[in-house]
């Protein structure tokens, strides 16, 4: 137990449940490499949206996917199959796993 007055106060008023930060941060760090690839796909789509002045709804329609699935892609945490990435690339004529983003 600390002698510090402020730490004693914080301990008396601390939550019964722990912060999720540490676990979530460690998960992101441990999964950094594939997350970077997933984010590369998301960033390529965001470029495409900005260059073509498209809304999310318009992009989902162009890709032939639901708004919910597009949201998962744009979150940057979708664990794609290579087949899915290839489909997106073929639909839009873009390269999604560009070195500048990965």
């Amino acid at each position: 137990m600390s002698d510090s007055k402020s730490i004693k106060f914080l301990e008396r008023h601390q939550s019964q449940t722990p912060s999720s930060f540490e676990n979530e941060a460690r998960w992101r760090q441990e999964n950094e490499i594939w997350l970077r690839m997933s984010r590369s796909v998301a960033l390529s789509l965001i470029d495409y949206m900005q260059e073509n002045n498209l809304s999310r709804a318009a992009l989902a329609k162009e890709l032939g996917i639901t708004a919910q699935y597009l949201s998962r892609i744009l979150s940057g945490t979708e664990n794609f199959s290579l087949k899915s990435v290839a489909k997106i690339e073929a639909r839009l004529g873009v390269s999604c796993l560009t070195p500048s983003y990965v």
Binding site: F21, R28, I46, S75
Partner: peptide
């Protein structure tokens, strides 16, 4: 949720950042 957890969820979410 606490502020730090909330911050890093937002800062790692492509939808929020877009």
């Amino acid at each position: 949720i606490d502020e730090l957890t909330s911050l890093f969820r937002k800062w790692s979410d492509g939808n929020y950042l877009l």
